[in-house]
């Protein structure tokens, strides 16, 4: 199955792409997806994961425009065609 992943803020800069398709399997979770993306885009890792490998609690996450909390990622499964949007905080003023 295939997911669409969108990146905002500094994550967009770090990954050098606004969005991309990612091949995935239905038995794998959102937390595993984020860990996979952190590996795929090393420069984006600090915006996704803490040094201990936990998802940053301030990372805004949406699946098909519904908000998902970081602490729900382990229990969140993904479906073919899902759009996962990752937005690290920004504060430019």
């Amino acid at each position: 199955m295939k997911l669409r992943v969108k990146y905002s803020g500094q994550l967009r800069t770090a990954t050098r792409c606004g969005e991309e398709d990612v091949g995935w399997s239905p038995d794998r979770t959102l937390a595993e997806l984020i860990a996979h993306l952190a590996e795929r885009h090393a420069a984006g890792r600090p915006h996704l994961l803490s040094d201990s490998g936990a998802i940053r609690p301030s990372l805004l996450i949406a699946i098909n425009d519904a908000a998902v909390m970081a602490n729900e990622a382990n229990a969140t499964r993904l479906r073919d065609g899902d759009v996962v949007w990752l937005l690290p905080p920004i504060a430019g003023g």
Binding site: Q10, P46, H47, R56, P57, S58, P88, P89, I90, A91
Partner: peptide, 16 residues
């Protein structure tokens, strides 16, 4: 609620 911890990699200077 949105940002329970300040992101450690945010810099005061940003592209604008």
């Amino acid at each position: 609620c949105l940002y329970p911890e300040p992101p450690p990699h945010w810099k005061r200077e940003f592209p604008v």
